[in-house]
């Protein structure tokens, strides 16, 4: 399994929790108050509750069901039903390798995360989901003009849009959906980014409309 992009760091503030999926593995991704990021199996080892419904207290993630706390290492630190108890070290979540590069959160569920090289000097653009297969997405990208100009594909996932470039990083999900994490040139201004973000929306709509028509 390759290291997969699961979203932008800037969309996950400290103390926030989100759900993701890599290669069919359901994940909880969360940031401690100190900014540290973790990616785990989305399951509390106590009673199987999805930890993505949980909440961050300090530098620990608490399960919504019984409030069990887990530290960044995945080890259970606190069981509210027994405040005096030192939880056994055997109670631990399944921890995966996670890394931040180019403002993107990268996860590998089978080994050490090694982010794919990003071929442009980039800044984060946005993250979105499309209900389509990878080939369909590439076709849709070429059909949606950007400011009157037809896009051109330079490399897999990399599109020339007028003077700008957009890189679409794909993460295939269940049910024929793809999660896209989009980057653009480092020197793109906010107004450019807003326009490029609208192009992403148009691509998503075009891709899904075609799918329905087909």
């Amino acid at each position: 399994m390759l290291t997969a992009p699961v979203g932008l760091l800037r969309d996950l503030d400290p103390k926030r929790v989100m759900r993701a999926q890599v290669g069919g593995q359901d994940l909880v991704i969360w940031r401690a108050s100190n900014g540290d990021i973790s990616a785990w199996d989305n399951r509390c080892p106590h009673r199987g509750m999805a930890l993505s419904h949980g909440f961050v207290r300090g530098n620990e993630l608490a399960c919504l069901y019984h409030g069990w706390h887990y530290g960044s290492s995945g080890v259970c630190r606190y069981i509210p039903a027994h405040p005096e108890l030192e939880p056994p070290a055997t109670i631990t979540t399944t921890v995966f390798s996670v890394l931040i590069a180019d403002g993107v959160i990268w996860v590998n569920t089978e080994g050490a995360a090694t982010p794919a090289p990003v071929p442009i000097a980039s800044q984060p653009l946005r993250s979105f989901h499309v209900e389509i297969q990878s080939e369909g997405l590439a076709r849709a990208c070429l059909t949606v003009a950007f400011e009157g100009v037809a896009p051109e594909q330079i490399a897999p996932g990399l599109y020339q849009l007028g003077a700008r470039q957009v890189l679409l990083l794909e993460n295939p999900l269940d049910g024929g959906r793809i999660q896209i994490t989009a980057l653009t040139d480092a020197d793109a201004k906010p107004v450019d980014c807003a326009a490029l973000s609208r192009w992403c929306d148009a691509v998503r709509r075009a891709a899904q409309t075609k799918r329905v028509a087909a």
Binding site: P45, H46, G48, A50, I79, A81, H82, L85
Partner: peptide, 20 residues
């Protein structure tokens, strides 16, 4: 609706209980 596995595991190794 957010517990996994959906069915109740009877094997004590699958879900770790405490005194409560």
């Amino acid at each position: 609706e957010n517990q996994r596995p959906v069915k109740l595991p009877l094997d004590p190794k699958m879900e770790i209980p405490t005194r409560a």
